[in-house]
Amino acid sequence: MNSSIKGIATATLGLLLNYSANPAFALPQKINHPVTVTKSQALTDTLIVPGERVGPITRTTTKQDLVKLFGASHLVDKTISGAEGMGNFAATQLNLNQGRSLLVVWSDNTRTKPLDVRNLGSAWKTREGIGMRTPLSELRKKLGDFKLYGLAWDYGGTILLDNSRLSSYYGKIILRVDAADNAGEKYPNDYRAVSGDATFSSSNPHWKPLGIRLTEIIVVLNPSE
């Protein structure tokens, strides 16, 4: 496995890059006292700082803190499954409008230590302006000519940050891209040329017709040891 992947423990990586959120596992809320959301925290602070915070959510944020920040009515506890049967993980969905929703994945069932934040809405951006649906052309402006894994497998579309302009984010954020809907059918030769368990340059011409955009952001806050 490439060095960009080795920096995170295998079990955590499996969770980070291949999991399923099962709505059937949604848990009832035990707290029924909504708290008013403050503008400074929930409405305007949508900054992603890789490895540190997603808005007001930091490495030390607990479920109780989420209730204080956003109100229990905006939160839904879930259990998500790891890749290939690699266990279950407690998670809390934050439901907010204007593209500000997200999912916090916890280190254990106490919901007192966040592993990562994912399923980010369109409002969340890094300081560089990287967010969901950012096109490949814009990513190249921010990262330089980076490498990424081919499409259509477990780690498909994962960007290798360690040799990019944003190498300082290595191990702190996972960025994955994918092709536009039906791109594989419309441009089968190009799609096959950049698919599979291999790395490709972001300047590879086969990416161009595929409508490549950022489709997954996972902000790592407390990686598993």
Score class of each variant (00 low, 15 high):
Ser195Lys: 07
Gly196Trp: 00
Leu160Lys: 06
Ser167Ile: 04
Trp153Val: 04
Pro188Lys: 14
Ser167Gly: 08
Gly129Ser: 07
Ile159Cys: 10
Gly131Lys: 07
Gly131Ala: 14
Arg176Thr: 11
Gly121Tyr: 03
Trp153His: 12
Ser167Arg: 14
Tyr169Thr: 05
Asp116Ile: 00
Ser168Ala: 13
Gly196Ala: 03
Thr199Lys: 09
Gly131Thr: 10
Tyr170Asp: 14
Arg176His: 08
Lys142Asn: 08
Tyr169Asn: 09
Ser167Cys: 12
Ser137Asp: 14
Thr126Arg: 00
Gly171Glu: 14
Pro135Arg: 10
Glu128Cys: 06
Leu136Ser: 08
Ala180Tyr: 01
Lys141Val: 11
Gly171Thr: 11
Ser122Arg: 06
Thr158Ile: 11
Asp190Arg: 10
Ala180Leu: 04
Val177Leu: 06
Ser195Leu: 11
Leu161Met: 14
Lys147Gly: 08
Leu148Arg: 11
Val177Tyr: 03
Gly121Trp: 03
Ser122Ala: 14
Trp153Lys: 03
Ile130Thr: 09
Ala179Ile: 03
Tyr149Thr: 10
Ala183Val: 12
Arg118Glu: 08
Gly129Leu: 05
Asn189Thr: 15
Ile173Lys: 10
Tyr149Lys: 01
Glu128Asn: 10
Lys141Leu: 11
Arg127Gln: 15
Gly157Asn: 05
Lys186Cys: 05
Ser164Gln: 07
Ser167Asp: 11
Asp181Thr: 04
Gly144Leu: 07
Thr199Cys: 09
